[in-house]
Write a protein that binds this DNA or RNA. Sequence first.
DNA 1: GGTGTAAAGTTTACAATGTAAACATTGCAC
DNA 2: GTGCAATGTTTACATTGTAAACTTTACACC
Lengths: 204, 204
Amino acid sequence: MDNAAESLTSYHHGDLRHALVEAGVTLLQAEGIGAITLRKVAGRAKVSHAAPYRHFADKQALLIAIAEQGFQKLTVTMQAAVNQYTDNPRQQLLAIGEHYMQFGIAHPAHLTLMFGEMLQQEDDVLHEVARASFDVLLNAVTRAQQAGILKAGDSRQMATSMWSMVHGLTVLKGSRLAEQGGGELKEYVEGMLEQLLEGLATSS
Amino acid sequence: MDNAAESLTSYHHGDLRHALVEAGVTLLQAEGIGAITLRKVAGRAKVSHAAPYRHFADKQALLIAIAEQGFQKLTVTMQAAVNQYTDNPRQQLLAIGEHYMQFGIAHPAHLTLMFGEMLQQEDDVLHEVARASFDVLLNAVTRAQQAGILKAGDSRQMATSMWSMVHGLTVLKGSRLAEQGGGELKEYVEGMLEQLLEGLATSS
DNA sequence: GGTGTAAAGTTTACAATGTAAACATTGCAC
DNA sequence: GTGCAATGTTTACATTGTAAACTTTACACC
């Protein structure tokens, strides 16, 4: 992050690994998973087609790195939602859902890569960054319980319910199975989430 | 469907298209999406590597056909869940969720293919078979409303909520983000779904 | 019954891709 | 300074998707 100094026509790139991941993300957004090619990615980083092998064991490793980057972005996004509503746990939960969907709809191919194929892989690093995203939600749930907004009980399980619903909704929204009317995205997610929160509220 | 008669060493295969899809499904289960290759699929059907082109415009078309087959199986599975509990709409909803998860956990790569990449494709036939699956749930929701088990209101939206939750849960279950205790799958889904149903119940 | 045509399959060819191996360059530790 | 390890490059090759030209076969029609 601090070696952006070297750039012009040096034999060594400086931060090729990072550049390759970013090139991959760009391709992913523009043309889908199938368009990610080691050679194209190398080309975009202005490097020979075999150079990526100095940083990734194989194509799969690059894809995993791209997925990781996605989870890191997602974590930042979700955390931003939390910070937006200090001391309002209920709003935090709704905002997390909204930001999650925004991310998923803005980057559908990235989300697909993150949760399809890659997460099924047995990669510890990937699962760790994925868990970091999950923990943002989990913490918000815990705070909501402490604030008396959600009933006591297995917070991890409640967080899983919410994540499931929001993730599923995001996927459906990416297809044509869930057509909303003209409503705003924010109202849409929040409406759905509130149905669930009602079942999770205190003194139900 | 009725020309299973011709089989042994005839130049014409008889039902190659179908055989190719099945071969693809087998590969998908065994080795994941990346292992699906036109040539391997052709090989399994004992046919030359270019033969698939008489039935599919390109590899993408084969993948879509495989995804379609997945939705058809899913529809059958869900419908079986409904038939299991005639005149108990609430049990029908829970059973649909359970069967959905069973399918997704038994065939994770297939589910990934169906909802990733493929559904983002603009393919009308695929979206139709996907909608057929969705409609099984939608009908069950409608019946539950008529039976007074769910509150009146936008049934499509309620079905979307449930589908989202169950689908999301299935995806998480395929990763390591949602670790349940030793409990049965059935209890697990139903517990989650009941949280939601509570929010959707009449006179909430 | 013969035949000719379209559907279904095969062969050959080629470009794109992932990957291995051998070679080149360069920054940095000593 | 110099030598080595890290980082890139070149060359080579097997796999794959796909196009084109050719072959076989079922079946409609006379």
